[in-house]
Design a binder for these strands. Structure first.
Lengths: 339, 339
DNA sequence: AGGCACATTGTGAGCGCTAACAATTCATGC
DNA sequence: GCATGAATTGTTAGCGCTCACAATGTGCCT
């Protein structure tokens, strides 16, 4: 708690105390090879003694590198985005970068533009956009910005470099699991149309059914919230006994709502209707009943995204195999298996 | 997507194009009063044309202000911390500051120290620490740092400026609600001992019982996770029929685990045992049954924290009434009310 | 001893901006 | 018509650092 000192020490101050030139101090700090061990020790002692820290602004000005990355995201209180954010932050820090975050309420073009401006003012070298909505990516593509941008979670629509989880595969796993358990068909409660993830999950679901020679039943839409799941669940309950025995819900929160609606309608899970969710939020294991769901590896997403962005910043060719989506995994629990 | 330009334009470039001095450009950008309208327009046109943006490093170097705040947090994928983070970020941006976040896996002294170092290297002017554990605050108090720090969520232990939700009040609301519903006594499943919030909730619970002349029953401990709630729930089930009819659980996730354990033991909620949680996570409304819980206003926490930190940075006397905790509210649902 | 290569250290010039001051312009009033 | 002050603009000097280069020092070979 010494933030009251008049002026923080500069490199020149340290140099004076150590009896060397400021450049030598810079060399020590920069781990340059050609510094005598004795000198290095002297300098380090002076640094320690004065509690010296390099001024990042001066450094950034001289090197033209801020070593700062930006992240734009919405819905950051949801498990998925929050987990991704965490992973990104971790990966960036490991690479020696600082992360500035802008959390938005909504990913409209306007707000996105403001966010990029804000980050730009902050001097970021590149930005990761958690933009799962197609409209957001389009907006992003139109916006001018003086740094590279990597999008997470919006399929590989080529327009902008991106990193993704293979949502279609996840949906195929979920749907296939239900078919394999003997269900004639599988209903689907999807996320909002504009979301790429929602669209991909619909595709994966539909493809799986069609590959099995089954006509896909009517598609239901929710908005990811438990409440929308609840409402959809009330509708679904009406189809029980008329061929509905299994539902693939596009996320765990909605699945929670569906479970409640079915329960209230006297429909038992999984005996009457089996349910599969998506995300594997920490709560899912303790739902009534515990939820079969699809888990995504956010840590890997974070690492790949940062790696790709850094490649872009450094002007390297992207090192990771581009466009390769990360594989999700099925987690089987009681909601699809009677005990 | 023009990040390939050789060198971004500087203020001098703009000045040349506009036919003025760089200082005049600076004045326009800084909204200085004494600039002729015509000149301002000329400059703005040049800025627009060149796509000029001020270099934040140079600015920071000259003004000695980075306009960046840091946030250190752990468990950022949980609803509470994620919500607080979001609110902090929003409030800071509204105040014209950029936020750099460091998300930690654990809030040990070592990692905290590294986090502060990292932020310090990034040139933050102040830091908000989401440090709900007492050990973390102690570590924070011992650590040297060249900027003010505000702690969120660790009671007003005076050592470090802090902003808090009145956890004891929340616990009193929860416990009082159960007593008022006619329960003879209320059990409590607490969070980890080291957490200030957990301790405060225990105190509020105990005080309420004692004020009602009731001897507090045995205290159970969890670690906030649904699993620990589940385990505790199994124990609690053993006391049903022996005086246990109501439980105040220190957070919603554990409450979820408790609900599952009770259900598996054939205990009905709320008919046999009433449950109150804490946090009001989005899922709570759709638990089986929907959970009565205590809601905290994270947006207010965020605003207060940023305001306090900015006061500290500017060297002002804290403007908000210091030490005033933010009031939580009870949200009554089916887990305490038979329909 | 002289010379050469290499290791080590120092010097000077910016990086792009803002703050302080100096210089110019302009409108007034007398 | 000219002094006078305000409005407007320009000039200069850093902010604290890194880079490129210059200047030493050191050891070793002939």
């Amino acid at each position: 708690m010494n933030h009251l000192e008049l002026r923080p020490p500069t490199m020149a101050d340290v140099a004076r105390l150590a009896g060397v030139s400021h450049q030598t101090v810079s060399r020590v700090l920069g781990d340059h090879p050609n510094v005598r061990e004795e000198t290095r020790a002297k300098v380090l002692r002076a640094i320690e003694e004065m509690g010296y820290r390099r001024n990042s602004s001066a450094r950034a000005l001289a090197t033209r590198r801020t070593r700062t990355l930006g992240v734009v995201a919405a819905n950051t209180t949801l498990y998925g985005p929050a987990s991704t954010l965490f992973a990104l932050e971790d990966a960036a820090r490991a690479a020696g970068y600082t992360v500035s975050t802008v959390s938005l309420h909504k990913l409209a073009k306007e707000t996105l533009s403001e966010a990029l401006d804000h980050l730009s003012e902050g001097g970021v070298e590149g930005v990761i956009a958690l933009a799962p909505q197609r409209s957001a990516v389009e907006a992003l593509a139109e916006l001018r910005h003086p740094f590279p941008v990597v999008v997470v979670g919006t399929g590989s629509g080529a327009e902008i470099p991106s990193v993704n989880v293979d949502q279609q595969l996840g949906a195929r796993l979920a749907t296939g699991h239900l078919l394999a358990a003997g269900h004639r068909t599988v209903w689907h409660l999807a996320g909002p149309e504009d979301w790429q993830e929602a669209a991909d999950r619909v595709t994966g679901w539909r493809d799986t059914l069609e590959a099995a020679g089954v006509e896909p039943p009517k598609l239901l839409r929710g908005d990811w919230s438990p409440l929308s799941g609840y409402r959809a669940g009330q509708q679904l309950a009406g189809w029980v006994g008329r061929g509905l025995t299994a539902v693939f819900v596009a996320n765990d929160q909605m699945a929670l709502g569906v479970l409640r609606a079915l329960r209230e309608a006297g429909v038992r899970t999984p005996q009457d209707v089996a349910i599969v969710g998506f995300d594997d939020i920490p709560e899912s294991e303790f739902f009534a009943p515990p939820l079969t769901t699809v888990r995504q590896d956010f840590a890997t997403v974070g690492k790949h995204s940062i790696a790709l962005l850094l490649d872009l910043i450094e002007g390297r060719a992207p090192s990771g195999t581009p466009g390769v989506a990360i594989e999700p995994h099925l987690v089987v629990r009681a909601s699809t298996a009677p005990d």
